[in-house]
Design a binder for these strands. Structure first.
Lengths: 340, 340
DNA sequence: CTGTTAGCGCGTTCAA
DNA sequence: TTGAACGCGCTAACAG
């Protein structure tokens, strides 16, 4: 009942050749195998149903090929377009992809980075914004530095500022342009659903938006900048609070689309039309196509972000960490009708 | 620049003990290490920043711990609730989770199963429906059987019928009940967006729905059962065709929620209200909360599906493959208002 | 171009 | 309870 799966030596014996030759024919990079022998090895492997033991290869080679993608969570509502992008990009490059769901804490990330280090993973990529003043950041940085010192490649998809190759997207600029666009549409009284108060992504988007308004001499009173969870449900509740408090606003900017959807859904449930309170988000996730009214947002080219990250990972690392910033653009849709 | 990451032998030397003892203290299952020595080993490991090489452990142990989850694709729009469920369940059980995005072809799946076999993966779990008459199925079955014969555990989350432990969800029954519910609401003239003509999930849901209608002496003419891609976009287009062809219907059943959202969005864009053409889906994905009108569907308890799959995987396998069927229930929402 | 040999890092016998 | 020695499956250096 408990057979053994065939090993390289089985293949070699059946082909009447040595393991070394079999190894070269099957997995070696060199071409230094006579064609006839190569064929015999491949035939033997096929007959035996041989499949290389990747773990053993990793041990022997001293390095595990492919990219280890570290994410904090696996969402159960809207897909994460960055993850999808990286998965697809890796597939195109024929790079094995190892998706690890680490957990939300930065110590979880440290643990997984160390695991990758133990395995001699070739490339480690992380997705996810950082927290301002996160006490775990130094530990994460040193784990990553150590991993790099031991020969690994690190690429972060997040905010700039850590000493590693990084792909960022223009949070501040996008929000700035969105603010401009909304002012031009005639909006004046804003509320902002700002998500986690310590999230850098959230902070950059909030600031960019405020800066954009400031150019038109508009401000947002502190009581209309709501912080809290970075989720759809939290936004739903927060919008309800705003409305109940009777605060007079004509538009809500949510710092990501999931939150914007929460706001939009609350307004719909409450019977408040976009002509009364408009909503705009950020990210341009695919799910936006299906809501009414369609949502104004900042489009980010997630596939480009992923491709850029992989490109950084697979090219030689220069002495100085590189930073690649991908910018987005505003997409005005029905949730922010021109205000007369 | 290229240091070495610490190995078990480094830890052992620093602790003044043998590798064997260090191994037992750090990763061994036995308790047979004197407490003082155990502490010294742990301290040494900590000081050195030791992290076990999982690949080497896998080679030595002859088995890679954890669950290897094989999915066909990584969606970029709506999250797959099954995947999220399994990830979370594995985390709860402290089982390392290896998520592999295989590709859509059944030969891709075979390749990954063989890779898992080569690595002596402990548990292989696959998510995704089968195709009727898929020529690749025998190859997949034999790859899985071989993997099992070599000591692995297989759990499928899909239709019943393959000789492995399987978790299924009641596609036919759920659709049947949905049909009943819609008839009771007063609907009579249906169209069905059936997805891939060869998909078993799609077929079961279509059949279940038709059976439910048949109990009320209702039928759906063949030209109103539309097959095609199993996607939101395809459903959007198909709904447009239905409307343009001027076919008289009062409700559309889409065999999954993504397709239902596509249909709903088309109707919205075309200005056709639910009172004229209703829409119902299947799955109850989270994204449904945010559309207008909210969507009638069949709710499936995805977390239960995942938990059940993991439970099958971690209990001893009896001689006969087990089948666990998780059933759902109809949720009537605004997209199917009572018809008078 | 091929085979022999020596590791890779770890778990696990078997004696002590 | 400990340590020495061996083996896991594979790659890579070195001869031939």
């Amino acid at each position: 009942m408990d057979n053994r799966s065939p090993r390289l030596s089985d293949v070699a014996r059946r082909a009447g050749l040595s393991v070394a030759t079999a190894s070269r024919a099957l997995n070696g990079s060199d071409r230094s195998v006579k064609e006839a022998n190569r064929a015999r090895v491949l035939a033997a492997a096929d007959e035996l149903g041989y499949s290389a033991n990747v773990a053993a290869q990793a041990v022997a080679r001293g390095r595990q090929r492919g990219v280890t993608l570290l994410v904090k969570t696996m969402p159960d509502d809207y897909a994460n377009p960055m993850v999808a992008g990286v998965v697809e990009a890796a597939r195109r490059e024929q790079l094995p992809l190892n998706l690890i769901v680490a957990g939300t804490d930065s110590s979880d990330l440290v643990r997984e980075v160390n695991a990758a280090r133990g395995q001699r993973a070739e490339i480690v990529m992380t997705i996810g914004g950082r927290q301002i003043g996160d006490r775990g950041t130094p530990a994460l940085v040193s784990a990553l530095q150590r991993y790099e010192a031991e020969g690994g490649r690190v690429v972060l998809i997040t905010q700039a500022g850590l000493p590693f190759d990084t792909v960022s997207y223009a949070n501040s600029q996008g929000a700035h342009e969105l603010a401009q666009a909304m002012v031009e549409l005639g909006y004046k009284k804003f509320a902002i659903l700002g998500g986690y108060p310590n999230g850098m992504t959230q902070r950059d988007r909030t600031r960019g938006f405020l800066d954009g308004l400031a150019e038109h001499n508009l401000t947002v009173p502190a009581d209309r900048i709501i912080t809290g969870d970075f989720t759809r449900s939290a936004a739903y509740v927060a919008t309800g609070d705003l409305v109940r408090r009777g605060i007079e606003i004509d538009a809500i900017f949510a710092v990501n689309d999931a939150m914007a959807l929460g706001a939009l859904t609350f307004l719909r449930d409450a019977g408040i039309p976009s002509s009364q309170i408009a909503v705009a988000g950020f990210d341009d996730i695919k799910a936006l196509r299906d809501v009414t009214p369609s949502l104004t947002t900042v489009h980010l080219p997630w596939d480009d972000v992923a491709a850029e990250a992989l490109s950084l990972a697979t090219t030689a690392r220069p002495d100085e960490p590189r930073l690649s910033v991908v910018s987005g653009h505003v997409v005005v849709r029905a949730s922010t009708p021109p205000r007369t």
